[in-house]
């Protein structure tokens, strides 16, 4: 028993340590943006500058590759800060991984028996999703938008949702639940990435529009310069969301299989189930909007963000506001 308490204690401290590291990473990512600002003195030429640089390379070099080209020459301001951000991100994620494992060991089960654990594991999921993507391509520009939801999630977990480590209530002991929740955690990570990219997309198109209209690019101009083009972002958001959608479908089905074995019915319109359904429908609408004339682009992006809000509401709102069979938050 003593060692279990120690493990829980270690886990808590690792969470704090990782939060500290994530904060450092956030500062580094912010600096990498801030230092980029010095490069373009006239904000109206921001996107124009990007375009010119693009044209230097061969015909089809896009903005993502542009960053690569520059990083080879090492002349990009803010690049160091971005790299530091990435390194600290790895460290923070390692610490958080340790925290999640210690928590699981202390409770003698998978570490997602209540909202606190689900939150720290989801934060881990978001970070890992980001780091995995970063292995294949340069996504330092996305770091800031990943670290913020991670910190918010961890902060809420520690401040609002904290629950002592304890074994599971019987209804939660099920393989299907394990599968259901791990799928949901991956979804949480990827949905968050998708939403982050969508937000960037909306901001970049705003800058593009202002620049096209001859207005000042505004405060976001310097950031817009350091991220991929609107088209690229739009496509990345679509690819992320379309990766999540089948997984979310699977998570819902796995949940239904578990509900069947626990309660004798696979679907009962419990608030949690209802909001899982609503989330699913809204993301299906998003995918449809992308294929419907007049709904592409902005409107589809807005629907994507609406879907993400439904997902978040299902997690925070439903667990804390409604009473239902899924009231396992452990928060009193």
């Amino acid at each position: 028993m003593a060692s279990e308490t120690t493990l829980a204690y270690i886990s808590n401290n690792l969470v704090y340590a990782s939060m500290l590291a994530y904060t450092v990473a956030m500062v580094a990512f912010a600096l990498s943006f801030a230092q980029g600002r010095g490069r373009s003195d006239s904000s109206t030429s921001v996107r124009g500058a990007a375009e010119t640089q693009t044209a230097v390379g061969s015909v089809s070099v896009d903005v993502l590759e542009r960053t690569d080209v520059e990083s080879e020459t090492g002349s990009e301001p803010g690049r160091r800060a971005g790299n530091i951000g990435m390194s600290v991100m790895w460290l923070a994620t390692a610490l958080l991984l340790g925290a999640v494992i210690a928590r699981g060991l202390s409770a003698g089960r998978v570490p997602w028996g209540n909202m606190y654990e689900f939150s720290i594991t989801s934060a881990l999921g978001i970070s890992v999703a980001f780091l995995v993507v970063s292995l294949k391509r340069d996504v330092r520009w996305l770091g800031m938008l990943v670290v913020i939801p991670v910190l918010l999630t961890l902060g809420t977990a520690v401040a609002v949702l904290y629950t002592d480590s304890a074994p599971l209530v019987p209804a939660l002991k099920s393989w299907w639940l394990l599968i259901h929740v791990s799928a949901a955690i991956i979804c949480a990570g990827a949905f968050t990435l998708g939403a982050a990219v969508t937000v960037l997309y909306l901001m970049v198109t705003r800058v593009d529009r202002r620049v096209a209209a001859g207005e000042s690019a505004g405060w976001f101009g310097s950031i817009a310069q350091r991220v991929p083009s609107a088209d690229r972002l739009d496509q990345l958001a679509y690819r992320t969301n379309s990766f999540v959608f089948p997984l979310w479908t699977f998570a819902v089905v796995a949940g239904a299989i578990w509900a069947e074995s626990a309660w004798g019915r696979y679907w009962g319109w419990d608030p949690k189930e209802t909001w899982a359904f609503i989330t699913w429908i809204v993301y299906a609408a998003y995918l449809h909007a992308r294929a419907t004339a007049g709904w592409k682009g902005h409107r589809a992006a807005a629907i994507g963000l609406l879907g993400y809000s439904c997902f978040l509401f299902n997690y925070f709102g439903v667990n804390l506001l409604f009473s239902g069979l899924h009231s396992y938050s452990g928060v009193k």
């Binding site: 319109w269 209802t274 609503i278 609408a285 449809h288 909007a289 709904w295």
Partner: peptide, 27 residues
């Protein structure tokens, strides 16, 4: 049409909301 599918999907999502905010006879 795709547009009708889109609108009906939205309607369905909105229509499900009261099912979570009001207590339901079934449960």
């Amino acid at each position: 049409s795709m547009r009708a599918a889109l609108i009906l999907l939205f309607l369905l999502a909105v229509a499900a909301i009261p099912g979570s905010t009001f207590p339901q006879r079934g449960t």
